[in-house]
Design a protein around this nucleic acid. Structure first.
Length: 205
DNA sequence: CCATGATCATTA
DNA sequence: TAATGATCATGG
């Protein structure tokens, strides 16, 4: 299995700037929505392939050196604006209680990312262009990283004192603990990056 | 089954 | 309209 460094992945992705991701999906058998089903993750799967990653669904790090993410953006007055929050990773109660921020799954996935901005125009849009690719490393000395750590510890403490059910998407300044999962009664949760954090990454890469 | 990929839908 | 909570397909 070959290792793709973030430099290589970045270069691979930039070769596809301004291309329509949906066409690539069609050519490679990645279902989008035209089968009548709704694959909400297809853009991420396309980008993983464009970056040169062969896996679709491995556990934590999709490379050992970086994490590939994509976010929908809308264009407002010619400027990119994050439309949605970004999922970081699932929350495991035991691990959250046990692991400090810098030992956490969350930090591992967040600290070195390649963030892909994908155009969003409307629900099930047929066009999805790759607008921008940002490579970003969180510096433990930076203020924003410390504030993210505070959010993490706040959520961790709330879990310890008030229980899993008390966690809500309203917690946290930069990251939040939202429900995510099968739905229909499932109560699993995940860390999400708020749009303000996404904006920060795009502006500072 | 469940984690990962995110978006959709409803509420405030 | 922004934010929170709910939902879906895929693959190991």
């Amino acid at each position: 299995m070959k290792i793709i460094t973030r430099e290589v992945a970045l270069k691979n992705l930039k070769n596809h700037l301004d291309t329509n991701l949906r066409q690539f999906a069609l050519e490679h058998g990645i279902t989008t929505y035209e089968t009548g089903k709704q694959n909400k993750g297809w853009k991420g799967q396309v980008l993983e392939r464009l970056a040169g990653l062969e896996n679709n669904c491995l556990k934590a790090p999709n490379g050992q050196t970086f994490e590939l993410k994509s976010v929908s953006f809308i264009i407002v007055n010619g400027l990119l604006k994050p439309k949605e929050t970004m999922a970081i990773c699932m929350i495991n109660q035991q691990e959250l209680l046990r692991d400090a921020f810098y030992q956490s799954h969350c930090w591992n996935k967040l600290k070195t990312i390649i963030l892909c901005a994908v155009e969003w125009t409307e629900k099930n849009a047929s066009e999805s262009k790759l607008l921008d690719v940002a490579s970003f490393d969180f510096d433990p000395k930076a203020l924003i990283t410390k504030e993210i750590q505070e959010d993490y510890e706040f959520i961790r403490n709330k879990l310890a004192t008030q229980g899993y059910e008390s966690l809500t998407g309203a917690d946290g300044k930069w990251i939040q603990a939202r429900t995510k999962g099968k739905g229909h009664g499932s109560t699993t949760r995940a860390f999400y990056a708020r749009t303000c954090l996404i904006q920060y990454v795009i502006d500072n890469c």
